[in-house]
Nucleic acid binder design. Sequence first.
DNA 1: CGTTTTTCCGTAAACGTTTACGAGAACACA
DNA 2: TGTGTTCTCGTAAACGTTTACGGAAAAACG
Lengths: 341, 341
Amino acid sequence: MASSIHDLARHLNISIGTVSRALNGRADVNADTRQRVLEAARTLNYSPNQSGRSLRQGATHSIAFMLQPHPGDQQYGEPFFIPFLTGLQAKLAEHGLDLMVVMGEPGKYQQERLRRVVETRWVDAVVLANTRREDDRIDYLSKAGFPFATLGRSQSGDDSYPSLDIDFERAGAEAVDRLVARGHRRIAAIRPAHDLNFGYLFLDGYRKALQRHGIEIDPELIASGFISEAGGYEVTPQVMRSKDPPTAIIFNNDAMALGGCKALAEMGIRPGQDMAVIVIVDTPLCRYFSPALTAFRPALEPMGQRLAEMLLASLPAFGGPEGPRIIREVWPLELVARDSD
Amino acid sequence: MASSIHDLARHLNISIGTVSRALNGRADVNADTRQRVLEAARTLNYSPNQSGRSLRQGATHSIAFMLQPHPGDQQYGEPFFIPFLTGLQAKLAEHGLDLMVVMGEPGKYQQERLRRVVETRWVDAVVLANTRREDDRIDYLSKAGFPFATLGRSQSGDDSYPSLDIDFERAGAEAVDRLVARGHRRIAAIRPAHDLNFGYLFLDGYRKALQRHGIEIDPELIASGFISEAGGYEVTPQVMRSKDPPTAIIFNNDAMALGGCKALAEMGIRPGQDMAVIVIVDTPLCRYFSPALTAFRPALEPMGQRLAEMLLASLPAFGGPEGPRIIREVWPLELVARDSD
DNA sequence: CGTTTTTCCGTAAACGTTTACGAGAACACA
DNA sequence: TGTGTTCTCGTAAACGTTTACGGAAAAACG
């Protein structure tokens, strides 16, 4: 069915070696024959077989992004990643690399899938997201010497991989600053459980800012739960049970914020009026929620592009480890003031 | 770096042929040696190289889903597809197939990308979405004889490919029924432009239902625009300029509905109070918008699973065209009554 | 015109698998 | 014991590329 390089060579009455060289833009081929080869390739509808090509070259020219929906996330679904992926894909494409998103199964352990992708040499590098503080995926890739980059920081691995993260610490601190400036003293923080690193980072910023303002850190005002609407719904009442309940809540996650607002509403507390609410990572839902949620917004598409650059700079085939080693970057967020605080 | 089948064979002092047969579960290998091979494979951390494997077999055991963000969709990003992909991936994995999402560039013509994927034999089959009435991607795949399935109907191709769609006609009709039952007679319909097929299907149902109720179809109440918030914002005022303006609007798309509601608000018209609003395809945004938007919800994850089954049944390697040929299915939507109508 | 350089192309090996084929050994059967 | 069958494994070809190597022809040079 599909035409091979042999068909092309036979059709042109030249050797396959010449055809290959012509197509790959090598110098040692006559300009005239190159013309003819390219033309024939177009008419015969030839493109080199990916498997043959990568087998010979030992490179697939494609990068995997490991996407794993949170369990029970049936209706929600990570709108966060699409703009990021758009940027990532665009920049990779500039260098002739293809991006493929590898879907994991919601509940399952992603490690297994990652191993398959790596060991079977499907791709030349992988990009990870939702990094945890201790992340066995990172440890594995580090140890295996497989090229990768992460969206999000971690304490794992040998520290020599590119990573790009959002400045959750600063966002947490700025959220506190903003609320304090508006007269709040009892400020709660709600973050995802598990070991997701950004939850810790956020909390650090939150704590430091409170100290800076001379406000005591009350453990009763800090809670964590599943990173989902249900999680926010479940955990928000906890901080409200304090003897001296909060007048403001910072949510580290939009899904949890939505669930939290629902819980508040059921307690007769109106976000934006009776309770100030700030969300750390903005998504479309924050904008359309009522009241529209004040949130910190990352520049997702540029971040995707940047991480692609950083990954490329770490690949031997693209300038490699000799070039300038830009290992870690942390990007600021932009506050989008809305109606909830 | 990565161990090959030769390493394994050398380590066990047997031939690579036997190793391969042992790993692939063939019958003509001694139970004892198979044991040893499997064990060695585990300790040596061996997995067969994907490229070598597919080159030899002429099959990659992976399926591509072509995802293309709408242009300018920076913050929004198709939450629609994640649950669908989750279902698709789960069912494919049951049969040892891998799903990879191939990202297109937002504005660009997807055809080119598709051709590359197909011609380089990256995958064994593809799944398309956002089908158009005349869809050159489908024509291309049909003509090329490349296996594929579509989420959404089309008039293209040779009609022998599996497709699964939502019953937009019925949803359009039911939306009208519901509004008429609540006393509305002036009902507008807003759909995406381009040639997106579901826009036409929706409109058919809308028209038929109006006729059934003996309500005249007023072209002034029908409009189409870009499938985005901006599109809805831009086009909604058109139907409001009618001499006898609508008292209800059916949006064929959540993004357009959000833009439309914004436009209405700016005209001092409150959705849910001064204007009934129904959305055809529900997304999380509909639920969180204020007022919460009444919408029709598809069962995305089961749909993903089902389309995987249909695709598999059409693949020669999996029972193939001999088996029962389930070619087309149309699934109903479920009405989720909220506050906007 | 002889020599050296350059230009261009064909040959063949290699990448890591899978699999058709055949052969030796063990076994069953008469 | 001779013959046919079964079990197990090694050999080698093939999948479609890319690329190192070498050689013939053409060009450049003296």
